[in-house]
Design a protein around this nucleic acid. Structure first.
Lengths: 181, 181
DNA sequence: GCATGTGAATAGGTTCACAGCC
DNA sequence: GGCTGTGAACCTATTCACATGC
């Protein structure tokens, strides 16, 4: 498949595809394009998604559970192996084969289950503390839904998801075209 | 408040704050900094969040409902006024004071309720169709959870949220530091 | 002949540093 | 004196265009 076709599928340009791929090596054959199966295998390797990641869910509220039950996660190699919540109502309840645990069991579970990624879906006030505890226990990456900037060592990547800000971005893009309000 | 302090709070640099703000005008006073109340009011205006937006939720699955019940949305001026889902089990049920409607009522509701933003939380197969119908009915912006690139006119901004890709980004950042796997 | 890989050109965005104003 | 607003310098990323190799 040519960079042209890859670009069309990925909503980008052929030059962009070639430059991006060249950053990681030489994948294609001149005159022919890229061998799809091999390219995918090599990219999966580079992205680190040629394996399963054990994920811990911190916060069993609506957002956390929605993620947990989203089948695409497991299908893509992200396996939620533990859930933590401080609500006594929720502790001990089973959700999709995983029992909700008290946060006091967090560090032990991270180590015992080999949790490398955590999803932080707790109120803003609790997020920093749980992030710190996660890092101390060996967590290597954090998907953060709390609307704060987490303070963690640079070796631990954080991806922030802030849905209010996404809506505000829409609001801005719509509003800026208007003469005045 | 000085650009220095604003930068510290926003995890950025003083120069960045000043450049960004200068793009929209001159807000500060030399020697003094920025008047916080006035600055906030003017930024809210610029972002278009000095008003309420009526939001329609398309897809009453876990993710859609989690959003819908997230109190920060309404608190920030995004008011979910309608829910649509094709599942007969869900149609007619009330969720947080809003009755789930059949998608056939979509266009009519968009017009009647003045829905300007929609949250697309439906399976990938249904997303493009609902996006198109939304645009035709007058929707002005889309928050898209479906893992596809929507094809809509350039006047309609789309913000994509792809949680699997967020986890993959973490996976990549962690994996790239490793010698080899 | 055809499409990659890449240096050169361009564009976009961040940082620097200071003149200008409070 | 202090801090903004902004041109200049710098850096990063995208686009162009073509030599290179299949």
């Amino acid at each position: 498949m040519s960079s042209e076709e890859l670009a069309a599928r990925g909503q980008t340009t052929a030059a962009q595809v070639r430059k991006d791929l060249s950053h990681f090596g030489s994948f294609g054959k001149r005159g022919l394009g890229y061998p799809v199966d091999e390219l995918r295998a090599r990219l999966r390797r580079i992205l680190g998604i040629d394996r399963t990641w054990n994920v811990g869910l911190v916060g069993a509220g609506r957002i956390g559970l929605a993620l947990f039950e989203y089948p695409a996660f497991r299908a893509r190699g992200f396996d939620c192996v533990a859930i933590f919540d401080s609500d006594p109502e929720k502790i001990g309840r089973e959700l999709g084969g995983v029992v909700v645990q008290d946060p006091s069991a967090f560090e032990e579970a991270v180590r015992a289950l080999g949790i490398e990624l955590i999803v932080l879906a707790v109120p803003a006030e609790a997020a920093q503390e749980m992030a710190q505890r996660g890092v101390d226990a060996g967590v290597r990456g954090i998907l953060n839904f709390a609307p704060i900037r987490l303070n963690v060592p640079p070796r631990v990547p954080v991806e922030d998801v802030n849905l209010v800000m996404e809506l505000e971005a829409l609001s801005f893009q719509i509003s800026k075209d208007e003469p005045d309000a």
